[in-house]
């Protein structure tokens, strides 16, 4: 565990806490894509199929539980909690799941380390995580009034990915034979998807104006 990885995980955790804060205290999920949240829940379910039979550390185990629990509870809130559900921008959140899920599944079946169910699901989760933010980015672009918490949520998610890239660079130079092409390429694609958002986020922050993405 290096400092980049830890900072990345903590940033990821913070993004989820920011979102839960918005949902739980303000009882609003305005500007948040349920599609993206459901895709993240699917990412964690398919990635952590090994949670009970492959033990790497107590840290990993607890973080897996937290990611699974929080992502499922966010989906539950957005679907089942009356007040939260009312604030959901359903008509704007139109991205189709199948455009994301099917290509990722096919790719995982073709490009993987081992053709076993768990390994293919794990690889699928990497590909899916890379593009799961797309419905959220589309929704952001359609939202005229992006509130601070939503902006911070997406910013923290992007920062988490950038820190993971640094973690891989660090591990490449410090751990002999550390090469993970599938993880790296999926991670790089995922980080690049945030580039545009980052640009406007930092611009709005520097100029102290409200965040708005150009159509």
């Amino acid at each position: 565990m290096n400092v980049f990885r830890l900072a990345g995980d903590m940033t990821h955790l913070s993004s989820i806490l920011v979102l839960l804060l918005k949902i739980h205290t303000i009882k609003s999920c305005a500007g948040i894509s349920l599609k993206t949240q459901e895709l993240y829940a699917l990412v964690f379910i398919t990635r952590y199929l090994d949670i009970f039979d492959r033990f790497t550390s107590i840290y990993n185990f607890l973080m897996k539980l937290i990611f699974l629990g929080s992502s499922l509870s966010i989906v539950w809130y957005m679907r089942r909690h009356k007040a939260v559900h009312r604030s959901y921008d359903k008509d704007q959140d139109t991205f189709r799941y199948q455009f994301i899920v099917l290509p990722c599944l096919l790719l995982a079946l073709v490009i993987n380390h081992k053709l076993t169910f768990k390994e293919v699901m794990w690889t699928f989760s990497l590909y899916l995580e890379a593009v799961a933010i797309l419905p959220q980015l589309v929704l952001l672009q359609r939202t005229r009034n992006i509130d601070n918490l939503t902006g911070q949520y997406v910013f923290l998610l992007g920062a988490y990915r950038a820190l993971y890239l640094l973690n891989w660079v660090y591990r490449y130079f410090t751990e002999p034979g550390f090469v993970r092409w599938i993880t790296w390429i999926a991670g790089l694609v995922q980080t690049l998807l945030y580039a545009d958002f980052f640009y406007y986020y930092i611009l709005s922050w520097k100029n102290n104006v409200k965040l708005e993405l150009p159509a």
Partner: peptide, 10 residues
């Protein structure tokens, strides 16, 4: 094993 190592991140 390399497979175990592959799964050491979140």
């Amino acid at each position: 094993s390399p497979e175990e190592k592959r799964h050491d991140e979140l």
